[in-house]
């Protein structure tokens, strides 16, 4: 990879989060996509970044409060009577 191309990678890095969230302006989107066609590294970074976020979404298990923690919370808040 030439230095010139690498400067482009660095320049686009700051927009990648918006890009994978789909909130980036059209012009920058096109610029990233044009660059990715020529730059294997940026393609991998974008794909694995997207995958990373996807995996965390997958593992965001349903929020669960252990019953003992719940009981103590309700007691602390004087809400015992509503604690099922």
């Amino acid at each position: 990879m030439t230095d010139h191309e690498h400067a482009k990678c660095r320049e686009l890095l700051g927009s990648l989060s918006d890009y994978v969230d789909g909130t980036l302006g059209e012009q920058l989107c096109q610029e990233i996509e044009r660059h990715m066609r020529e730059c294997q590294n940026c393609r991998v970074v974008v794909d694995t970044l997207r995958k990373t976020i996807h995996l965390y979404h997958q593992t965001a298990e349903p929020a669960d409060l252990p019953n003992s923690v719940r009981q103590r919370l309700y007691r602390t808040l004087n809400l015992d009577e509503f604690s099922r």
Partner: peptide, 17 residues
């Protein structure tokens, strides 16, 4: 700047997770 450029997206989901 990124330093890791291995594409691991092809790993099966049951291995990733």
């Amino acid at each position: 700047e990124p330093t890791q450029f291995i594409d691991w997206c092809c790993l099966p989901e049951e291995e990733l997770l």
